[in-house]
Measured scan of single mutants.
Amino acid sequence: DCSRLFDNDLPDGWEERRTASGRIQYLNHITRTTQWERPTRPASEYSSP
Protein backbone atom coordinates (compact mmCIF):
# COMPACT_ATOMS: atom_id res chain seq x y z
CA ASP A 1 0.00 0.00 0.00
CA CYS A 2 1.08 3.53 -0.74
CA SER A 3 0.09 6.63 1.11
CA ARG A 4 -0.51 9.81 -0.84
CA LEU A 5 1.59 12.88 -0.41
CA PHE A 6 0.51 16.25 -1.74
CA ASP A 7 3.09 18.10 -3.76
CA ASN A 8 1.98 21.10 -5.80
CA ASP A 9 5.40 21.36 -7.47
CA LEU A 10 4.89 18.28 -9.64
CA PRO A 11 3.99 18.68 -13.32
CA ASP A 12 0.34 18.11 -14.30
CA GLY A 13 -0.83 14.51 -14.18
CA TRP A 14 1.66 13.29 -11.58
CA GLU A 15 1.17 12.23 -7.99
CA GLU A 16 3.85 11.62 -5.37
CA ARG A 17 3.38 8.56 -3.17
CA ARG A 18 5.35 6.91 -0.42
CA THR A 19 5.69 3.13 -0.46
CA ALA A 20 5.21 0.98 2.64
CA SER A 21 9.01 0.97 3.04
CA GLY A 22 9.09 4.79 2.96
CA ARG A 23 10.53 5.25 -0.52
CA ILE A 24 8.97 7.98 -2.70
CA GLN A 25 7.63 7.04 -6.11
CA TYR A 26 5.77 9.04 -8.73
CA LEU A 27 2.51 7.95 -10.34
CA ASN A 28 1.67 9.05 -13.89
CA HIS A 29 -2.13 9.21 -14.09
CA ILE A 30 -2.11 9.33 -17.92
CA THR A 31 -0.07 6.17 -18.56
CA ARG A 32 -0.85 4.55 -15.20
CA THR A 33 2.82 3.87 -14.59
CA THR A 34 5.19 4.67 -11.73
CA GLN A 35 8.79 5.74 -11.61
CA TRP A 36 11.36 6.46 -8.91
CA GLU A 37 12.79 9.60 -10.53
CA ARG A 38 10.99 12.90 -9.95
CA PRO A 39 9.24 13.90 -13.19
CA THR A 40 10.09 17.16 -14.91
CA ARG A 41 7.47 17.13 -17.70
CA PRO A 42 3.67 16.84 -17.63
CA ALA A 43 2.35 13.27 -17.59
CA SER A 44 0.76 13.76 -21.02
CA GLU A 45 4.24 14.06 -22.60
CA TYR A 46 5.12 10.48 -21.63
CA SER A 47 4.04 7.64 -23.90
CA SER A 48 2.08 4.61 -22.76
CA PRO A 49 4.05 1.38 -22.38
Rank of each mutant, 00 (worst) to 15 (best):
S48P: 15
W36H: 14
S3I: 15
Y46M: 07
W14A: 02
S47Y: 15
Y46I: 10
T33M: 12
Y46R: 09
T40W: 05
R32T: 12
T31H: 09
A43K: 13
T33Y: 03
E45A: 11
S21F: 03
P42N: 08
P42A: 03
S48K: 02
T19A: 06
L27K: 08
I30M: 07
R17T: 12
A20L: 05
P39L: 01
P11V: 02
I30L: 09
T34K: 03
T31Y: 11
N8K: 11
R4W: 08
S44W: 06
C2V: 07
S21H: 09
L5N: 15
E15T: 13
P42F: 08
Y46Q: 10
W14F: 04
D12I: 11
D9F: 04
W36I: 01
E15I: 04
D1K: 04
A43N: 09
T40H: 08
R38F: 03
D7C: 06
F6S: 12
R23E: 15
L10Y: 02
D1A: 01
R18D: 04
R17K: 14
R18M: 09
N8R: 10
C2M: 14
P42R: 09
Q25T: 04
S48A: 12
N8F: 04
E16T: 09
E37Q: 00
E16M: 15
E15C: 07
E37L: 02
D7F: 05
S44I: 09
L27H: 06
D9L: 10
L27I: 06
P49S: 14
S47G: 09
R23M: 05
N8Y: 02
N8D: 09
D9E: 10
S47T: 09
N28G: 01
P11T: 06
Y26P: 03
H29C: 11
I30Q: 08
A43G: 11
G13T: 00
T31G: 09
R4G: 11
H29N: 06
G13N: 00
Y26E: 02
G13Y: 04
E15A: 10
E16C: 08
G22L: 01
S48G: 12
D7W: 04
P39M: 00
P42L: 04
W14Y: 01
I24R: 07
E45K: 06
S21P: 04
L10M: 06
S3D: 14
Q25H: 08
Q35M: 11
W14V: 04
T31N: 14
D9K: 14
F6Q: 13
T31W: 04
H29E: 08
S48M: 12
E45M: 07
Q25Y: 09
N8I: 03
I30V: 11
R4L: 12
Y46F: 13
I24A: 14
P42Y: 08
G22E: 05
S21N: 08
Q35K: 05
E45Q: 05
E45G: 06
N28W: 00
W36Y: 11
Q25N: 04
R32A: 14
S3A: 11
T40I: 14
S44H: 15
R18K: 08
E37A: 01
R18I: 15
Q25E: 13
D7I: 14
Y46T: 13
Y26N: 04
D12V: 08
T34H: 09
E16H: 15
Y46G: 12
R38N: 03
A20T: 13
E15V: 10
I30F: 07
H29S: 14
R41A: 15
R23G: 11
C2Y: 14
R32P: 07
A20K: 10
I24W: 05
S47Q: 12
F6P: 14
G13D: 03
R32H: 15
Q35W: 03
D1R: 00
S48I: 10
A20E: 14
R17C: 10
P11Y: 05
A43T: 09
N8S: 06
D12E: 10
L10C: 03
T19F: 04
Y26W: 04
E37I: 02
L5E: 08
R32E: 13
Y46P: 10
S3P: 12
Q35G: 02
E16A: 11
W36K: 04
D7L: 05
